[in-house]
Simulated assay, not measured.
Amino acid sequence: MTGSASELARCLGENAEAVCLEYLSNGHRSGNHWIVGDVRNTRGRSMHVRLKDNGRGSAGKWVDEATGEYGDLLDVIEQSCGLTEFREVADEARRFLAISQPEPVNAEQPPPAARGSPDAARRLFAMSQPLAGTLAERYLVGRGILLPGRERALRFHPGCYYRDLVAGETQTLPALIAAVTDLDGRITGLQRTYLSSELDPSGNVGKAQLVDPRRSLGHLFGNGIWLGLDPDLPIPVMAAGEGLETMASLRTVMPALPVTAATSANHLAGLTFPPNCRRLYIAADADAAGRQGIERLSQRAGEAGILALALRPQLGDFNDDLRHLGPARLAAWLSEQLVPEDARRFLPPG
């Protein structure tokens, strides 16, 4: 059986072009090389993969002239698939080569994170990079969303794995990564918003042209994408809603108010309340499922002794309000819906 890294790399090198077609699909063949942007399958021309052995080196070896990075096809599988442990890389390489997997050496060794599990979510979040200066930040700014620099729930992945569930095809795309956490700040899942790598006519970054540009994984029910959560501090007042952009828009004009996005109406209905919470603002959603989620959450809040108040946008949602009316008009509109004490505390003067 094939188990060592060197043997797997050699076998992959013998099938170098097939490996590139599978994992570096945004590239193309040019002579004896496969040309692509980088090892994460970005479009471009700076990375060269040798397809056949020659006097200069072995098939499967690659170099990125822009960054100076180099490696073999195991590195390609690791980076393009978003893997972190060699065991996972080797398993994927064997799957591609249709080689039987070796028997485990240590039966007590923990298995790799199951696909879609909280562990998989935590691994992907750890592999992502801070938001500043990335396409994900530009996507948010293009929607009028400006968040405090200390925000830690949002990150960026330049080449996140995406599988078309109908066609069965896979590709890697840039993605905004949002951590779903419990009230202790522990990551239980995440949401990926796949982004276009090209600017729209207005110069902003939009969502990728996909049927479902958002995917979630992990344990979501009861938890949310928290912005402004400090597990060591009480949360007497908070806001909750379905969508990330909706809640990030509220956070933009009320940066001291903790908010959470539950990702769906059903998850909103089952949101876990922080201890000592006494007021809950719920961002309204116009569709039927959204109304049901709000009604159920309001009922649960009342049963827990929490005052639930709906916040309603002027347009379709609060991100529409932020983009088309501006932060000052949105703040003025919200001031009429907040408890006076909260308006003074969370809205800027004037």
Rank of each mutant, 00 (worst) to 15 (best):
M1R: 12
A5L: 15
S6A: 14
L8R: 13
L12T: 08
L12V: 08
E14M: 13
N15T: 10
V19G: 02
L21E: 11
Y23T: 02
L24E: 05
N26R: 12
G27V: 03
H28V: 10
S30Y: 01
N32H: 11
N32P: 03
V36K: 09
V36N: 06
G37Q: 05
D38H: 02
V39S: 14
N41A: 11
N41G: 07
R43A: 13
G44C: 00
R45A: 10
S46R: 09
H48S: 14
V49D: 07
L51M: 02
L51D: 03
K52G: 01
A59P: 02
K61C: 14
K61D: 15
V63Y: 10
E65G: 14
T67M: 07
E69A: 13
G71K: 11
G71F: 07
C81F: 05
T84L: 14
E85I: 09
R87H: 12
E92A: 14
E92Y: 10
A98M: 13
Q101G: 12
Q101T: 12
Q101W: 03
P102V: 08
E103D: 13
E103I: 09
P104H: 02
P104D: 05
P104N: 01
A107S: 13
E108K: 14
P111T: 04
P111A: 12
P112T: 06
A114E: 15
R115F: 12
S117G: 03
A121M: 07
L124W: 12
A126S: 14
M127P: 01
A136R: 01
E137W: 05
R138F: 01
L140I: 08
G142A: 06
G144P: 04
R150Y: 11
R152S: 15
P158N: 11
D164F: 08
T170L: 06
I177V: 15
L183K: 07
L183H: 05
R186P: 00
R186T: 11
G189H: 07
L190H: 11
T193A: 05
Y194F: 15
S196N: 13
S196D: 15
L199K: 06
L199Y: 05
G203N: 02
N204V: 01
N204T: 04
K207P: 00
A208V: 06
Q209L: 10
V211L: 13
D212L: 12
G222Y: 02
I225V: 15
G228R: 10
G228S: 12
P231G: 04
L233T: 14
L233R: 15
I235N: 01
V237N: 00
M238E: 01
G243F: 08
E245F: 13
T252L: 00
M254T: 02
V259C: 08
A265K: 10
T272G: 09
C277I: 06
R278P: 03
Y281S: 13
I282Q: 04
A283P: 09
D285V: 09
G290A: 06
R291T: 11
G293M: 08
I294C: 11
R296Q: 15
G305R: 07
I306C: 09
A308W: 00
L309H: 05
P313T: 01
Q314P: 00
L315N: 10
L322D: 03
R323A: 07
R323I: 12
P327C: 09
A328S: 09
L330F: 00
L330H: 03
A331C: 07
A331W: 02
A332Y: 12
W333A: 15
V339S: 10
D342Y: 01
R345V: 04
R345F: 10
F346D: 04
P348M: 06
